[in-house]
Computed example of a mutant assay.
Amino acid sequence: MSDNEKTAPAGDFNEEFQGEAADASAPEEVSGDEPQEDGLDVLQAQLDDLRDRLLRAVADAENTRKRAAREVKDTREYAVTGFARDMLDVADNLERALGLLSDDVRASLPESVRPLVEGVEMTQRRLASTLERHGVKRVAPEPGDPLDPNLHQAAAQIPADQPKGRIAHVMQPGYVIGERTLRAAMVVVSAGPAEGVQPATAEPAADKPDSSGRKPGSGLDVEA
């Protein structure tokens, strides 16, 4: 073998090596837009998830704010509930005491006692106005009013002139504080008119006199 056959020219070897390297490093052509569309779908899904989380966070914050405001309002409005409930006995006693004084009794009172009665009346009015200023209002239904289970407590049922199921008598007034019932009014419910009481019946037509004042059949000649 000659020396020319043993040793290849350096220039030919370099050209062949560079050609193979260029072929290996050449990027493959990508056909279609599928990878790009998949990436957009992923980004859109992430965006929707973030938007949903943001809306939930805003809603939770708003609900927390409203709940806190409602709790503050309830605390202010119902802070005197226990004290007001204890003062109802005082209001009831004042009302009972003044209810025993009829007009005749008041007129017969000596002059030295009348200022005492006026002082009790003034105390009752002042107590009622103080309770109302703190949100405590009196509930005093009238006979014939419908029964409200939220405000009234039926203690008994008696025959009365009022329709059945309506209030016939008020035994004790009730009180509310804000939108809550502090004490239900004690009432007596009507069971309707008493049994055996019937409306007056009309006179039978056969016994009614006619326009001349005579009853039917009277003054007629009957042949034998």
Rank of each mutant, 00 (worst) to 15 (best):
155 A>V: 14
92 D>Q: 04
163 P>C: 03
152 H>M: 07
93 N>S: 10
122 M>E: 13
200 A>L: 15
74 D>G: 03
223 E>K: 11
24 A>I: 13
54 L>K: 14
15 E>L: 07
144 G>P: 11
178 G>I: 00
18 Q>P: 08
188 V>Y: 02
165 G>T: 03
129 S>T: 07
69 A>V: 03
5 E>N: 10
131 L>I: 01
134 H>G: 10
28 E>N: 14
30 V>Y: 01
115 P>Y: 01
126 R>W: 03
208 K>N: 09
110 P>G: 05
181 T>C: 07
25 S>G: 06
93 N>M: 04
62 E>Y: 05
131 L>H: 06
3 D>T: 05
19 G>F: 08
209 P>L: 04
219 G>V: 05
31 S>C: 03
66 K>S: 09
98 L>I: 06
130 T>K: 05
26 A>C: 05
73 K>L: 14
183 R>F: 01
190 S>R: 01
82 G>Y: 09
115 P>H: 03
53 R>F: 07
187 V>C: 01
13 F>C: 06
200 A>Q: 12
7 T>A: 02
10 A>M: 11
211 S>T: 11
103 D>T: 07
210 D>I: 07
89 D>A: 12
169 H>G: 06
51 R>K: 11
42 V>K: 15
109 L>Y: 00
127 L>Y: 01
126 R>Q: 13
58 V>R: 13
161 D>L: 14
89 D>V: 10
157 Q>F: 00
68 A>H: 09
21 A>L: 15
63 N>L: 13
10 A>N: 14
48 D>C: 04
13 F>K: 14
113 V>D: 08
166 R>C: 04
55 L>V: 13
160 A>P: 00
58 V>I: 14
184 A>T: 08
205 A>T: 15
21 A>R: 02
78 Y>M: 07
4 N>I: 13
21 A>H: 05
222 V>Y: 03
162 Q>F: 01
107 A>T: 05
31 S>L: 11
145 D>A: 13
30 V>M: 05
48 D>Y: 04
45 A>E: 15
154 A>Y: 00
38 D>G: 06
37 E>C: 05
184 A>G: 11
78 Y>A: 08
58 V>H: 10
51 R>V: 11
185 A>L: 05
197 V>L: 14
132 E>H: 02
117 V>R: 10
40 L>A: 11
109 L>G: 00
97 A>H: 04
162 Q>L: 00
136 V>C: 02
11 G>T: 13
171 M>R: 05
127 L>W: 00
22 A>R: 09
119 G>S: 14
48 D>A: 13
16 E>K: 15
78 Y>H: 11
179 E>S: 15
182 L>H: 02
35 P>Y: 01
146 P>G: 08
107 A>H: 03
60 D>Y: 05
133 R>W: 06
220 L>F: 11
121 E>T: 08
92 D>W: 00
182 L>T: 04
209 P>D: 03
193 P>A: 02
123 T>F: 04
96 R>Y: 08
